[in-house]
Amino acid sequence: MIEVRFHGRGGQGAVTAAEILAKAAFEDGKYCQAFPFFGVERRGAPVMAFTRIDDKPIRRRYQVYKPDYVVVLDDGLLEVVDVFSGLKEGGKVIINTSNGVETTNGAEIHKVDATGIALDILGVPIVNTILLGAFAGVTGAVSIDAIIKIIKETFSGEIGEKNAKAAKLAYEAAKKG
């Protein structure tokens, strides 16, 4: 079973990201589960969301404490939340940042300037789909084709196209390393 933890803030799309990842994994033929943990219900407040992916149906319903992968939508959270908490050995962390990030526990860190890409392509600083593209490139746990298909199902029309394009760009950048 692959367990993923997303850290974001209300309004950044962490919950939607976790759901898109689950639906994409299902599209790839896997079983899936995704759910949020809200702090307070307001824009900007720290939020966690979780995705589980497995070859068989998933029953357990507690929060993810030992993730294989962590996705951080906002590097401002690094000061507030221990995003590395419980990360499995050999686990990977994908962070939206344009700054340097110190690693702890020898975690493998992948930095993506998702806000830059988002402002360029989408015109708004919503980074969830971009990080999903990067996630597919870094981990290989889900196919980029499935991610793009679900992004287009989730956001219709031009917004879907733009998000798909942004995700693909982040995927290719992550593939190059």
Partner: peptide, 8 residues
Amino acid sequence: KTGSWRTF
């Protein structure tokens, strides 16, 4: 401190 919520 909610200042860290800013993008702009």
